[in-house]
Simulated scan of single mutants.
Amino acid sequence: MAAHNHIPLPIGQVPSSPYYIHPSDMNSMQFVSNKFKDEGFTDWKRSMTISLSTKNKLGFVTGIINKPNLQYASYKQWERCNDMIISWIMYNLDAMIARSVLYFNIAAEIWKDLEDRYDSIDAFFTKMKMLWDELHLQSYSKDFQTTTRSEANAVLDEAQ
């Protein structure tokens, strides 16, 4: 039986590696049906998460795959993937939002910035919509007719 000498592929050429970039991957890929434009962040984020996961790149935005030290062999592959992911994120954002994250150098920092800015806004508007829907339903009941303005303001203050 002959011995097989296997030469390992560089990390960027192993299809199961997060550093692998498929030849069909382009920096201007539309991952979601609509670019994010200040509303619907939770849906946009979920769609992007699914797309990044299918590309084996989710760890770059969640921070699981950290930037290696400059002297490590994987540094260049990490940098290449990180830059590709940044371009994917920016391409799937509205132009004004993309400009606001243009000078971030790490995809995970862009992701965190977007979460910090828009996750809380989505949650606030969702809660406000639920309260408005509840108030709308109550407008048809007798209880609403006896609700004072200060009671209604208290409900709205509670939402914040």
Rank of each mutant, 00 (worst) to 15 (best):
P10T: 01
A123W: 00
L58D: 03
I21K: 12
T148A: 09
S53P: 07
F31H: 11
L9Y: 04
S120R: 09
V14T: 09
Y140P: 02
E79Y: 04
T126K: 12
T42V: 09
W78A: 03
C81R: 02
T147W: 08
T42E: 14
S17Q: 02
V14I: 07
M90N: 11
E115C: 15
H6W: 08
G63P: 14
G12K: 01
M128F: 02
T54F: 14
T147S: 08
N82C: 11
Q77D: 08
P68C: 07
K55R: 15
T62G: 05
Q71S: 09
W132K: 15
M1T: 02
E115S: 15
I97H: 07
I85Q: 12
Q13Y: 00
M96R: 04
I97L: 05
N92W: 04
R46Q: 15
L9W: 02
M1E: 09
P15A: 05
A73L: 13
Y140W: 00
T49A: 06
D43C: 10
S33T: 13
V61Q: 09
E115R: 12
K45Y: 10
P8V: 02
D143S: 13
Q13H: 09
A95S: 11
D122K: 06
T146Y: 00
F104K: 08
M128C: 10
Q13V: 02
Y91M: 09
I86G: 14
D25W: 01
W111V: 12
W132T: 08
L102E: 15
P23E: 08
A73M: 06
I97V: 10
E115F: 01
N27W: 04
N69E: 00
D94G: 06
L102S: 06
D113V: 03
I50G: 14
T54W: 11
I85S: 09
W44P: 14
Y75W: 01
I86H: 10
T54M: 15
F104P: 10
Q77A: 08
Y103W: 00
C81M: 03
M48P: 12
P8C: 02
S47P: 07
L131P: 07
T62K: 08
Q160C: 07
Y140N: 13
M90Q: 15
S24Q: 04
E79V: 02
K112T: 09
F31Y: 08
N153E: 12
K142F: 02
M84Q: 15
K76D: 09
A154G: 14
R149I: 04
